[in-house]
Design a protein around this nucleic acid. Sequence first.
DNA 1: GGTTATCCGTACCGTACGTTACGGTTCGGC
DNA 2: GCCGAACCGTAACGTACGGTACGGATAACC
Lengths: 217, 217
Amino acid sequence: MLLANADIDNSQALTERQQAVLDAALRLLVEEGDNLTMTAVARRASCSKETLYKWFGDRDGLLTATVQWQASKVRVASVDGKGLDLASLTASLERFASDWLSVISSDTSIALNRVAVGHAGSGKDDLGAVVLENGRFALARRLKPVLEAGRQAGLLEFTDAETAFRTFFGLVGRDVQIRLLLGDRLELTEAAIGGDAARATQQFLALFGAKAGPQGL
Amino acid sequence: MLLANADIDNSQALTERQQAVLDAALRLLVEEGDNLTMTAVARRASCSKETLYKWFGDRDGLLTATVQWQASKVRVASVDGKGLDLASLTASLERFASDWLSVISSDTSIALNRVAVGHAGSGKDDLGAVVLENGRFALARRLKPVLEAGRQAGLLEFTDAETAFRTFFGLVGRDVQIRLLLGDRLELTEAAIGGDAARATQQFLALFGAKAGPQGL
DNA sequence: GGTTATCCGTACCGTACGTTACGGTTCGGC
DNA sequence: GCCGAACCGTAACGTACGGTACGGATAACC
């Protein structure tokens, strides 16, 4: 689910072997966090450090390549907004919500966000921007057309799609991501995710659904 | 505002000088992120490295002491729930919301959360737990009585205070914290914070206010 | 079969930084 | 005035790790 890098792959000239190396680096990143060593990556990937440096320049290059490689793999599924009624809109929103919760609670996402947050402090590279672009902003790009379609169909009422999206984002994510990033155990079962997605969707519809007045500016 | 460590200070036997050292470390942490060196701290605090090690054990000890020191300073103001009507409840909620937004958008909070997130990966210390305990969970402890009072006064309707709190948390924070942690520029002016706090409060009241039916489980 | 390119494995170098050790100074107690 | 404790400044040590160099193996190509 929610993986679909089939069509246009932005893997800029990555050979099979290089992808395997990046996968190894990614696995190591999940296990070790940001304190993975080049030696460890080389050993895990069964390649030489010299090759790593030839291919990726330096440690930061390897890290960004790894993050981009993973980012190119995780894609929230898109939704077509034709024949929209309340049921299908609700289903779409719930789908987005549960997909998003699945992503942010996955080990790889947590690890990637951790290293990106860490690097955002001493801004050598733009890992934070990459993660943000392929995470929160990609989600917005996918969801906003659905919201707009819902408004066109008379199902939703809002003035600014960005504001509506951010509210939905907040209702879905709540404190989950920061708690996970800070190391809080918080296992999200499939069922819990489904329940949260449904709840968030209902709350969003209560706030932005047509004929439900009280949503402010 | 929102600082009140007057009464019971949990500064466990920290001399004036030690607090000054921790303040210096904190300032350096904000500037340099997690890659601050013991030498830099010693120089900034005008103390010797030997003293640092005698007082705080090792680098991690210094870091946790710094985080706890800051945590003991930042306290969200508490609210008394007597004579509660809709206006005062709204005011309290807005106050909580804007205080919280001010905290999470402050430089020190961002820096502290960054290092805590980074350390949560390779779990040597419990910086994440400390931050979580003094951030998100402290907020919940302060806010829940207000919510309960609101329910007692017939102003709010909810079955689980935790769920209600988490919804409020999501409506207030939305994507702000993760974006800031990932390095997104996002200056929150006083006015913007006030507006967001009011919006979040209104949305929360729309969902959980009495005589507003549609809030699900 | 020879040549060349690619890459693995490993040894090596330089450096940054955590940690420790030590001499010099201040200061309170007697 | 002397002693010891606390502390500053700095030098020194050990190590981990990023980055580089080199020998040997494999394979493609002629």
